[in-house]
Design a protein around this nucleic acid. Structure first.
Lengths: 339, 339
DNA sequence: GTGAAAGCGCTAACAC
DNA sequence: GTGTTAGCGCTTTCAC
């Protein structure tokens, strides 16, 4: 293994009896080359099994054909769907992505961004979950275009959904079913997504004249048993609560576990709504009512915007904000409250 | 954005009044430099906000500090766990991975490998699911070290589990519960993993003197409704079958859906065993009995082996085969057959 | 159309 | 210890 040396453009040139610039021209189709030479060159490429060295090319034309992708939890299917969309558009332009899983950890995010910059990625797509990441993003933006998904930073291109609206719809659904004591389970971080969904939660209460108990907003750190802990707290100390709106499906599923572990029934004893509509939502029993975002499309839009920025080079452009619509998918985990 | 130009090693050198080699030396800690100059250089680095250009470095020292990672389905949590393990070891050496999702498609795999080679990855870790990929791997191996996970190719470093053993344990468990008509749901591809699990399935029948009905091996192509189709076939045409052994959890979960859609009960009407012990296995209701592989460890071992090969450079070494143990996790989806 | 040559930002002899 | 210089493999003027 690893013993055969890569032939270079010089090897091709001498094999085909032309100059390296001519080889480069046919490689990139960057100028007209006589059919005859072109044929000879292509023959040489075949014969020597030539694979162009993208690293050298990158150094010369200052484009690495690589982007950095920052997600906060790769094992969350939400992200893999978005990645799918991103992959779809960047691979058309022969781009690769370095995807990095921050585990909602700012230090990791910082480390990864640093390395991406060293690798001279042409752009970055980020799902930063931490508002403190803004400083990092701001620095990175000095060097490469950045588009943020699901988290709007000032003066930054971004694609988002109407999180407040999504949360509003979820809670409205619960309220219309007669629920009055509704818990909101959410991660304990500061970012716009969390803020927006929290606002949606509160707004629905307001619109329907329901008193809002701030204590019903249960915050939890990211972690394996994040969801079950708070759910247990609800079950132990708040028997009056009849419905839970979870920040995402993962948290909702964790609630399932805690609730079902006590022999309680969903939705008879507790209605639950999630967010994201990941596969888990359909796997789980009963199937989860959840807010669905156009994940794939989010990835596509983000990547398209980024590629556009990369093409534009240094031009200062107004930051763009792309807003996509989510919808509520009603399944089996919610039901009308019995009187 | 994208407007500030990166300072180079020359900028640092002139700022600190030294030569570029001295700067390079402190950057790489590759030789002793006087404390005084070192301090000045570090100051200049801070001041100019210098970020070394890894691309140029790669070109010079012929190491891209990048590996290629080929998986067949990123949305399968099995892979994200392995990736976790890989990430853990490569990031210590400042390596990045390009991870590529082939969707079990040979053409995509070929395309990705080609691009990785162009990017001059230092090595490749692959979960090729297709035996036809061997030709690709063989070509790639000429240029960079390759370690394959969960699929042994000839003369290739690999880390695997005892798939035949795992399948054997799963089926043995079913047999001991009294099941005699057992279906095996499996992907319709040719690879060693599939072959091994099929062998395990057959071996268990043999050991326990159970007649083996080849028709009970149900093959299905990869796809969204892969599992439910075959399960429906079983339900429609083989009422005598009382247990299903699925090639992986994803397929098992799809079986759940088909079975439960008919109002049938698991495990009362059908016992099910999966493979992989992904999170789905614990989310699903009833919880899935499944074969658990040391996913994270598989990633770690694979990455360690690859990094070793990269360090060894061109030395011809005997291919190594690392075998890890899996275990059967009995949960709620299997029960003794009623007489 | 085609080739010569400079340059991309770095590493690694080599000389001092 | 430190600087000079020749690459690494490519792209891209600039002549012809």
């Amino acid at each position: 293994m690893n013993s055969v040396k890569h032939p270079t453009i010089y090897d091709i040139a001498s094999e085909a009896n032309v100059s390296i610039s001519t080889v480069s021209r046919v490689l990139n189709n960057s100028a007209v080359v006589s059919e005859k030479k072109k044929a000879k060159i292509e023959e040489a490429i075949q014969k020597l099994n030539y694979v162009p060295n993208v690293i050298a090319r990158s150094l010369a034309n200052k484009l690495s054909h690589t982007i950095g992708l920052i997600v906060s939890d790769l094992s969350n299917p939400f992200f893999t769907d978005v990645i799918d969309g991103i992959e779809h558009v960047i691979s058309k332009e022969e781009y690769f992505a370095f995807n990095c899983d921050t585990r909602y950890d700012l230090a990791r995010e910082k480390k990864y961004i640093g390395r991406m910059l060293q690798k001279r990625v042409d752009g970055i797509i980020t799902f930063s979950t931490n508002d403190d990441a803004y400083e990092l993003i701001k620095d990175a933006k000095q060097l490469v275009p950045v588009v943020s998904v699901q988290s709007q930073f000032r003066d930054t291109d971004s694609v988002n959904t109407y999180d407040a609206k999504g949360a509003y719809m979820a809670v409205e659904h619960l309220i219309k079913l007669g629920h009055k004591k509704i818990a909101f389970i959410v991660f304990d971080y500061d970012n716009l997504t969390i803020e927006s969904r929290t606002n949606g939660f509160m707004l629905a209460h307001e619109k329907y004249g329901l008193p809002l108990n701030k204590k019903y907003i249960f915050k939890t750190k990211f972690g394996a048993d994040a969801g079950s802990n708070v759910t247990n707290e609800i079950l132990d100390n708040h028997p009056e609560i009849t419905a839970i709106f979870a920040y995402n499906d993962k948290l909702a599923v964790a609630s399932y576990t805690a609730i079902q572990a006590r022999g309680l029934n969903i939705p008879d004893d507790m209605s639950i709504v999630g967010y994201d509509d990941t596969v888990s939502a359909s796997i789980v029993n009963p199937k989860l009512t959840t807010v669905s975002q156009p994940r794939y499309e989010m990835g596509v839009k983000a990547a398209e915007l980024l590629m556009k920025r990369i093409r534009e080079k240094d031009e200062k452009a107004e930051p763009e904000l792309i807003l996509l619509k989510e919808k509520l998918v009603v399944r089996e985990s919610t039901r009308a409250l019995k009187r």
